[in-house]
Nucleic acid binder design. Structure first.
Length: 490
RNA sequence: GGCGCUGUAGCCAAGUGGUAAGGCAGAGGUCUGCAAAACCUCCACCACCGGUUCGAGUCCGGUCAGCGCCUCCA
């Protein structure tokens, strides 16, 4: 059974600078390319925003009935410290620092990145190609560019001839002549124009990462891999190319030039996530104010981090500070507790075997609002608002009694589908599950303590009962007395 | 200097010209032995100044403030 894809999806295309109705070139199938990380250090919060933002887009497209081939590369060579040719390869530099082989560095941080994304409940890419595994494709593309007169060899390196390609700058709306002179370091004499960028670089003596090429021993430039690999796995004119706004220039601009100057129509739509700020400042490696995902996940539940990320739109800056995290933690708890309560009622309570048409109507209305929001350029904050509306109505109903079984099931499925499948907020092993999985010893002890406290309460020895509760509160355990007995959570 | 973005309540954050979604925090109430949770109620002169319009947070111009890219960055 195939679901008919939803045709009313609008996304903001950076190239066209407006929202456009989305229609893949092959009906029902979406080719999606996301610029992945350069694996030379642990992933930081910015990577988390990027990963989650486009994971949500992918999930939404799946939800709306599309098949998605999601390709995200791993840059493990060619990304230099700066654009002047005396820059060191980031991987190689790190390798020297950690006394590892470059490939060990790439591997180490690739797995680190993969684990972080998994923790954040980001779906694995359909294809996760590495630059070093596609040297041949990159060389071939460079040869095509040379043959067409858009690239030239010089001193063992090959450069893209920016002057030969009038459309260079169309994505970022830059005119070559407007670019500020003098911000560049030493202009390489081997370049015809200082703005020409490297497609292939000659490896100096002692350079470890090197491959044979028609131009001698060397290594590919940073930009060429994405052109080569996206075209290889998604074909010409694929649907969506995504990445961080900071890659728009020069990286994405270069990608377009490389592909199209070689005669290959490139991405039909461009999507860029905006940046993330901490206390008002962009977080980046060069600023040194970055927090790695691992550090953060030591303090906050991964689902809370994800919730905070999706509670702002991908195309706006996301501000993160302690209060924002606190807010996200409490807000997320409200959602997950509501789902937990629904599942508890389905499991434990005697739900009547009928329908509550009024409540079901409300559930469906909130679900429709959610989907409308997602269709409008993946407006996750608006979608979450619908989830909160749903939560309020359901909690009110749950306060009044236990709704009919089929109504509860509709509610559960709505949470699981929209909050879980689309926003990715209810991962296996996420906070909802983790809170209940404290191991046998803790569970048994808690049972004893709560039983003792219940006895005190029944005998109206409230001082003793409260002392137990206060002690638990001090160590971070919250006890709640409900109609069905006491309940606890961390 | 060039390109571009943003200024909405204590904090986070939506908002397609018609009189401000949502969440967190806060206040009051219901419930509770007391709490907690939940529910109900309350909580914004949309940076500033002009203009267009019957009507502007939303369009135009200007001012102020902040930020990003132009050099590695998601």
């Amino acid at each position: 059974m195939t679901k008919t894809p939803d045709s009313q999806i609008y996304l903001y295309d950076t190239m066209q600078r407006q929202k456009v109705q989305f229609a893949p070139s092959t009906p029902g199938h979406v080719g999606f390319y996301l610029c992945g990380p350069t694996v030379y250090s642990d992933a930081h919060l910015g990577h988390a925003k990027m990963g989650v933002a486009f994971d949500v887009v992918r999930r939404a497209l799946l939800h709306f009935g599309y098949k998605v081939r999601f390709v995200s590369n791993i840059t493990d060579v060619g990304h230099l410290q700066n654009d002047s040719d005396d820059g060191e390869d980031k991987i190689a530099k790190r390798a020297a620092l950690e006394q590892l082989e470059p490939m060990e560095v790439a591997d180490k941080y690739f797995w680190s990145f993969a684990r972080d994304m998994e923790n954040l409940n980001v779906m694995k890419p359909s294809i996760n190609p590495r630059a070093t595994g596609h040297i041949g494709e990159q060389i071939k593309l460079i040869e095509e560019l040379i043959a067409r007169g858009h690239a030239y060899e010089s001193g063992g390196s090959v450069y893209f001839d920016v002057r030969s390609w009038a459309e260079y700058g169309k994505l970022s709306n830059r005119k070559l002549d407007d670019q500020e002179e003098g911000t560049r370091e030493a202009v390489r004499e081997e370049k015809r124009d200082p703005r020409d960028f490297a497609l292939w670089k000659k490896a100096e003596a002692g350079h470890i990462m090197r491959w044979d090429s028609p131009w001698g021993s060397g290594f590919p430039g940073w930009h060429i891999e994405c052109s080569a690999m996206s075209l290889k796995y998604l074909g010409e004119g694929f649907d969506i190319h995504a990445g961080g706004l900071d890659l728009q220039f020069p990286h994405h601009e270069a990608e377009i030039a490389q592909a199209e100057a070689a005669g290959h129509p490139f991405a039909r739509h461009w999507m860029h996530n905006h940046m993330l700020t901490i206390n008002g400042e962009k977080m980046s490696k060069s600023k040194g104010n970055f927090t790695t995902i691992q550090e953060l996940l030591g303090k906050y539940d991964p689902m809370v981090v994800r919730f905070l990320l999706v509670s702002s739109h991908y195309r706006t800056n996301t501000e993160m500070n302690d209060e924002a995290f606190e807010s996200a933690r409490n807000g997320y708890r409200r959602l997950s507790e509501a789902l937990g309560e629904i599942e508890r009622r389905l499991r434990d309570a005697d739900a009547p075997d009928s329908h509550d048409a009024a409540l079901e109507g409300k559930i469906k209305a909130h679900a429709a609002a959610f989907e409308d929001a997602m269709r409008d350029d993946f407006n996750t904050p608006k979608a979450i608002a619908a989830l909160f509306g749903l939560t309020t109505d359901l909690n009110a109903a749950l306060n009044a009694g236990t709704p009919p079984r089929s109504t509860l099931e509709l509610a559960r499925d709505t949470y699981r589908t929209l909050g879980g499948d689309v926003l990715g907020l209810f991962a296996e092993g996420g906070s909802a599950a983790a809170a209940q999985d404290d191991g046998e010893v803790v569970s048994a002890l808690m049972e004893l303590v709560l039983k003792a406290r219940q006895n005190y309460r029944l005998q109206k020895q409230y001082a003793e009962a409260d002392e137990l509760r206060d002690t638990l509160t001090r160590v971070g355990v919250t006890v709640e007395d409900t109609k069905d007995g006491p309940r606890w959570r961390r």
